[in-house]
């Protein structure tokens, strides 16, 4: 897959021959908590606290976790929408974690685009489709004059729209259609990597399937790489090649999809997978349910040791003392747990 992808992307010279498009090393994002008249720092919310993973060209990485686990913050930090507190982000072999804003805009921004969750809030209601789709091209000075109109028609056709719609406004479209517009906008500047943050969560299931199919078709067509952030474990299983599970700002487990879903190693992944209600299907055994006690602890005051030990059915004494190391325990199967 990766060889053909690079061939297709001939207009984007790559600085390195590495098979990885994106490498995230020990990424941290802490938000300060300020209090008092002087707004002194009294602590921090460790939204992302040491996350590492690598993304190959042309693959889809799924990141799952419950609300508040830091998956969206991780997605936004790794494209520098938030300034990282620590850690390195290597995109096409270049470290972008401390690159200046103007250089970032000149050389990286157009290669990474984002699709957002809420198709109602992420499109400007006062602009026509034509403007919404040309704005990224204006910013990056691409496709001038007649070419721009042609590109917009092409984009609309790609996402299943009639090019006649260019002069319409977002309110004239349904949720699923708006999400298609969001996808077309992300594609306007021919990106390599798309960060999709809960792109189908706000949609009905029949529409959700249309959007997922569209994203898969576009990936095959254009050789795109996706980082797909979602709380829906079934959707992530369907679309991803490799999947990471986050809990309280930490990556708990990261593996090839099949390994993660068939043989989850981390107790949290096991509990999470068992909690998903699945429609009965003939000949499919249901997983034995592990009900986790209690709620997610606050990320401003995470538990000592392993962050999951307060809810973990397999916790032992060491879990509350020492932070487990995130290590490769099987081939391409990373886990942060004292059991392994």
């Amino acid at each position: 897959m990766s060889a053909t992808t690079i061939a297709k992307k001939g207009n984007h010279p790559s600085n390195t021959d590495s098979e990885y498009l994106l490498e995230v090393v020990d990424l941290k994002k802490h938000f300060p908590i300020k209090a008092g008249i002087l707004q002194r720092n009294v602590g921090s919310v460790k939204a992302v606290d040491g996350v590492s993973f690598k993304v190959k060209r042309g693959e889809t990485i799924g990141i799952v976790g419950e609300s508040g686990c830091g998956k969206s913050t991780a997605g936004r930090t790794l494209i520098r929408l938030y300034e990282p507190t620590a850690g390195n982000i290597l995109f096409k072999g270049r470290n972008i974690s401390n690159m200046g804003e103007s250089e970032l805009r000149r050389s990286i921004r157009k290669d990474i685009q984002m699709i957002f969750q809420d198709p109602f809030a992420s499109l400007n209601p006062r602009k026509t489709l034509k403007y919404i789709l040309s704005e990224p091209m204006i910013t990056h000075q691409m496709y001038k004059g007649k070419e721009r109109g042609e590109k917009i028609d092409e984009l609309l056709e790609k996402v299943g729209f009639n090019p006649m719609f260019v002069n319409r406004y977002p309110h004239e479209f349904s949720g699923g259609q708006r999400q298609r517009i969001g996808i077309a906008r992300a594609l306007a500047v021919n990106p390599d990597l798309i960060i999709a943050d809960e792109p189908v969560s706000a949609l009905d299931v029949s529409i959700q399937a249309q959007i997922i199919n569209l994203m898969e078709d576009l990936q095959d067509d254009l050789g795109l790489t996706y980082v797909f952030i979602s709380h829906d474990l079934s959707v992530v299983r369907h679309i991803s090649d490799r999947v990471g599970v986050m809990y309280l700002g930490k990556m708990m487990e990261f593996a090839i999809k099949k390994d993660l879903y068939d043989e989850p190693l981390h107790p949290y992944t096991q509990a999470l997978l068992s909690a998903v209600p699945v429609p009965k299907r003939k000949g499919v055994e249901r997983r034995e349910r592990i009900i986790l006690k209690g709620d997610l602890p606050s990320p401003s005051n995470p538990p000592q040791g392993c962050v999951f030990h307060t809810r973990c059915p397999a916790a032992t004494a060491i879990c509350s003392e020492k932070v487990p190391e995130y290590k490769e325990v099987k081939k391409e199967h990373f886990v942060a747990c004292h059991l392994y």
């Binding site: 029949s206 959700q208 399937a209 199919n213 079934s234 369907h238 998903v276 429609p279 499919v284």
Partner: peptide
């Protein structure tokens, strides 16, 4: 339309 948690589906029938 719903992807399965168990086993593979090639394409969702939307």
């Amino acid at each position: 339309s719903i992807p399965s948690l168990e086993g593979e589906t090639d394409r969702l029938q939307s």
